[in-house]
Design a protein around this nucleic acid. Structure first.
Lengths: 195, 195
DNA sequence: TTCAAATACATGCAACTGCAACCAATTGGA
DNA sequence: TCCAATTGGTTGCAGTTGCATGTATTTGAA
C-alpha cells in the first residue's frame, strides 16, 4: 500500500488533473459568458430533479455531489436565494430537511444544459473517437467504482453519474405533502440575484 | 462545434470529474495528515526544480501550472514566506522576475514526495492494471495535447507533465548571477509558518 | 424516565480563488 | 524624441471553501 507508483501511473495522474482542469475551465467560462450559474449549481439541480419530485435530504446530496456538509449547506442557501430550490421540513425527523427543486430551478437547468452540453462536446468529445470515449468511460468508471468501494471513508458517492439531462420530470413543483413546519435557524444570508 | 455530446461522452466527463475529485481529496488529506503543504506547492516546486538552477519567470510558471496570474503571484508569496522559494530581478527586463527554489524548498519537495507518491499509487495505481494505466495515460495525454493545441486561448500549458520526481538537482541554491536589485512593491503579506 | 451519544444541519473564521483595477517598465510607431 | 499600447506583475474586493464548533433533535441504554 505504501509503495511508489510507476512512472506511467504518475504521468496518468498528472494528465488526469490537467485534462480535468482544462475542460472544467473551458466549460465554466462558457457558462459565465452566457451569464449562467456555475457548474456546481447544475449538478445539484440535476440530482434534485432526478428522483421524481420527492426531493432529497441534504446528506444524500452531499454524497451525490462529493461535497462537504458545510459547503453543501451554503450551496443550498445560494440555490434557495436564487429561487431555484427550497427547503422543506422532513416530517419523519425534526432535524432533517428535504430540498426540492422549483419550477425556476428546472428551467434554469435546461437553459444551462443548452450551453453545458456543447461545452462538454467541445472540451472532450471533439478530441476523442467514439471508441476512445467508450474506453475512457470504462476505465474511469472502474476507477470511481473501486475508489468508492475501497477507501470509501468519506461517503458512498452516487452509484452512477447517469446521463439523464433533459427529462419531463412529471409532477407538480411543490410537494403537497410537506406542511412547512418552519425550519430552524432561518437566519439566512441576504438574497442576491445571480444575474 | 455546437453539437450535443453522446451519452458516453457525458458519462465519461462526469466520471473524469469524480475520479479526479476523489483522488485529489485522498491525496490532499494524506498530505495534510502528514502536516505537509498542499499539492499546489508541490507542483510549483517541481517546476522550479526542473530546468536546472536557472529558475523560472512567473509567467512561465503560470502556464505550466494552469494558474491565473494573480493567483500565481500569491502562491509565490506563500512559498517565499515559507522560505521555499525566492524572487530575483530579471536583469534583461526591469518589469520581470525570476523565481528560484531554495534548499529548504528542494528538501520539502522531497519530503512531500514521500507521501505524495504512495498516495498516487493508493488513489490511482492500485485500481488499475499496468495495461489499463498505460491506456488511460495515452488517452488523457492525447486529450491534453489536443486541448492545448486546439482551443489554447489561455496558455500553451507545459509540454509534458514529466515523471521526474526525485533528482539530484546539481548546482548551488542561490544563483550567483542575480544581483538583487530590489523588487518593486515588496509590501508582502506577513509571513506565516505553514506548520 | 433520563441522560449521554449520535445524527442532521448551520455558522464563524481564516485561507484561497476570480475579477477588475492598478502600477511600472518596455516596445513601437509617428 | 515622445507618447500610446503592450507586457509583467501586484492588490483590493467579493465570493467560495475547509475546519472547527455550535445547536437542535433523535436514539439508545441504564
Amino acid at each position: 500500500m505504501a509503495t511508489n507508483p510507476s512512472s506511467t501511473v504518475v504521468r496518468a495522474w498528472a494528465r488526469l488533473v490537467k485534462a480535468q482542469q482544462f475542460a472544467q475551465g473551458a466549460i465554466e467560462s462558457r457558462l459565465k459568458a452566457a451569464r449562467l450559474p456555475p457548474l456546481a449549481w447544475y449538478d445539484a439541480l440535476l440530482e434534485l430533479e432526478r428522483p421524481g419530485t420527492c426531493g432529497l435530504r441534504p446528506f444524500e446530496l452531499e454524497r451525490a455531489l462529493l461535497l462537504s456538509q458545510c459547503n453543501l449547506s451554503r450551496l443550498i442557501d445560494r440555490l434557495e436565494n436564487a429561487g431555484y430550490a427550497g427547503r422543506r421540513v422532513y416530517e419523519q425527523d425534526g432535524r432533517g430537511q428535504v430540498v426540492v427543486i422549483t419550477a425556476a430551478g428546472k428551467s434554469i437547468r435546461r437553459r444551462m444544459w443548452a450551453v453545458y452540453g456543447p461545452a462538454i462536446q467541445g472540451a472532450l468529445g471533439a478530441h476523442l473517437t467514439p471508441h476512445q470515449a467508450a474506453v475512457l468511460d470504462e476505465l474511469l468508471g472502474a476507477m470511481v467504482a473501486k475508489s468508492t468501494a475501497h477507501q470509501g471513508r468519506r461517503a458512498p458517492l452516487v452509484a452512477e453519474p447517469a446521463p439523464l439531462h433533459v427529462r419531463p420530470a412529471a409532477g407538480s413543483t411543490n410537494s403537497p405533502t410537506a406542511q412547512r413546519r418552519r425550519l430552524r435557524p432561518a437566519s439566512r444570508r441576504a438574497a442576491r440575484r445571480p444575474s
